[in-house]
């Protein structure tokens, strides 16, 4: 079953087309990355998906039901980009207020979340740092044990320890079948944790595929240190465009038979070699740049 089904979704702000006829599905149990440059339409897409904005056209189903039926919220966990909780409430009051909207809350799990994210329930929300507000928002989004999590720029402003705690929990939930729709600017996170990813630019989905396939389709990043220069024959044979780094290492993206490449490189006097997946940020740089052109 599809946890998210978006068909022909468009959203305009007067004459400005923020989201332009996009269609995509997210399967149940997916950890789905949603990326794009600033102003590409990520947040508008999310808010239209959740019914916070009224689409100009298109349909959205969440957890198998049309969003207009308002049945999905019981199984939804959502964190908007800006964690604007109620500043005059204490953390504990905020959590209890949101908890009362759900049919049932597993108090044991809630207690565990509070411990994991190390919150002080007696502090007022308005006195918290942005990172701590985010932690409260995370607890509020997870406490109802949702089947679908929609996160919009969640991990920024969290310290590395809390980021790890968050992703540990998300991975655990994802393994249990929870669908995670994860919008982020942090491509490293998306590459590390997401199974599939969609790229949005100028309101249109320009790429949607598994992270693995996208990375594999580009090739691998090879970085070598050698006293020799890579000869013309090598460059022509393997169709690579090397860049010399400040450290003197030579790096290039290679797509082809890795054994053949290693065989050729072995003819040089290597002091080190590193072969790794190409980073998403390198891959998506060209997509992002397309927006500026």
């Amino acid at each position: 079953m599809q946890a998210i089904k978006v068909v022909g979704l468009s959203k305009n702000y007067e004459k400005f087309v923020a989201v332009d006829n996009i269609t995509f599905n997210v399967e149940q149990g997916d950890f789905f990355g949603f990326i794009g440059p600033n102003g590409a339409g990520k947040t508008t897409t999310i808010k239209s998906m959740l019914g916070l904005l009224q689409p100009n056209q298109g349909k959205v189903q969440l957890l198998g039901e049309d969003i207009t039926k308002n049945t999905f919220q019981q199984d939804l966990g959502y964190i908007p980009g800006e964690a604007n909780l109620y500043d005059n409430l204490k953390v504990g009051e905020q959590i209890r207020y949101f908890a009362h909207y759900y049919k049932s809350i597993d108090q044991g799990y809630l207690k565990q979340l509070k411990q994991t994210f190390e919150i002080n329930e007696n502090k007022k929300i308005g006195e918290l740092s942005l990172g701590n507000k985010k932690k409260v928002a995370i607890i509020c989004s997870l406490m109802n044990k949702p089947k679908l999590l929609v996160f919009d720029e969640v991990s920024n402003s969290l310290d590395p320890l809390m980021q790890k705690a968050l992703f540990d929990e998300l991975i655990r939930l994802n393994k249990k079948g929870v669908t995670i729709f994860y919008s982020s600017h942090n491509l490293e996170e998306v590459q590390t944790y997401c199974k599939n990813v969609a790229i949005i630019r100028s309101g249109k989905i320009i790429k949607i595929d598994s992270v693995e396939k996208i990375v594999a389709s580009v090739g691998v990043q090879v970085t070598i240190k050698t006293k020799d220069m890579l000869d013309e024959l090598f460059l022509a044979q393997h169709k690579v465009q090397p860049t010399v780094l400040a450290s003197g290492a030579i790096t290039f993206v290679y797509k082809g038979n890795i054994n053949a490449l290693i065989h050729s490189i072995a003819k040089h006097h290597l002091s080190s070699i590193r072969i790794a997946d190409v980073k998403l940020e390198n891959i998506f740089e060209e997509y992002y740049r397309g927006d500026e052109q």
Binding site: K47, L50, L52, Q73, N84, Y86, Y101, Y102, C140
Partner: peptide, 15 residues
Amino acid sequence: SEKHIDYLATKPIKK
């Protein structure tokens, strides 16, 4: 104005 609506309107309560 304080943007709480993003939370409230995604809770199980109709607009």
